[in-house]
Write a protein that binds this DNA or RNA. Structure first.
Lengths: 127, 127
DNA sequence: GAGGGTGTGCTAAATTTTTAGCATGAAACG
DNA sequence: CGTTTCATGCTAAAAATTTAGCACACCCTC
């Protein structure tokens, strides 16, 4: 995620698949696509993304397994920041509010407890 | 944000500018681009995005002002969900934790208070 | 050994995206 | 009024992206 808008449609899709799964073979990447082209088209795109420096490959037995070049933590941070700036005026509070607002129904009390704890810890750190 | 990977590089960039600012003229969209092409190239892209149904225009005096076709709240929700699924295994808790982790230094106690309140409200709603 | 399945490297063509310029109209200015 | 500036609609070409097929290699089974 070197620059927010450096990737094309299919490139973005492939990178998201890799971020979600951590790593994947070309066949796995292809299986994760709702609108998958041919196997060789997927491989060609993976090669291009590697040339561009967005991902790398490792040998896994007879085949390659692909991983994002950028550490996941870093990519997370960038993605979060970009989302906040695009939709929430850069505000953590607004972002969290939207998260809680849209997902409340699915959260257990224990999860809410955890969040409270996280906030307490953040309070200590911030002082 | 009809489908997570429907937009190309420049299309994505333009939609993000519109979501960020709410609405913009072609000149304003262009000014917001770090790597802006010509004015007429920007207008051409805006026209294409409108044909595809992603945005609409209104007359504002002598010029058009462009707005996302999708309500901002809806787009927010979609974007949040997509981010959570891509980077946080779909977990609100993990997402919030990452937010707090990376932004703690910038948050005032009053903002943390507000978050605590939000969680309390979420707790009530969820029961 | 032959055939089938799976994998890679590479190439080029098809397709999509992006770009910019032209023609025209309206408004502002001297 | 003439000129300049700003705006739109439109077109086509340049550029980028995406696609798929070929040649080859390796492995397994019969």
């Amino acid at each position: 995620m070197k620059r927010a808008h450096a990737l094309s449609r299919r490139e973005r899709q492939i990178m998201d698949i890799l971020y979600r799964s951590g790593k994947a073979t070309a066949a796995e990447v292809r299986d994760a696509m709702p609108d998958a082209p041919s196997y060789s088209a997927v491989r060609a795109m993976l090669r291009i993304l590697e040339e561009k420096g967005h991902l790398r490959h490792e040998q896994d037995g007879p085949r390659y397994v692909f991983l994002p070049a950028e550490p996941r933590d870093q990519a997370k941070r960038s993605a979060l920041r970009h989302l906040m700036e695009t939709f929430f005026d850069g505000s953590v509070e607004q972002t969290v509010a939207a998260l809680l607002d849209s997902e409340t129904r699915n959260m257990k009390p224990s999860e809410l407890d955890k969040l409270s704890r996280l906030i307490e810890e953040a309070r200590k750190k911030g002082v």
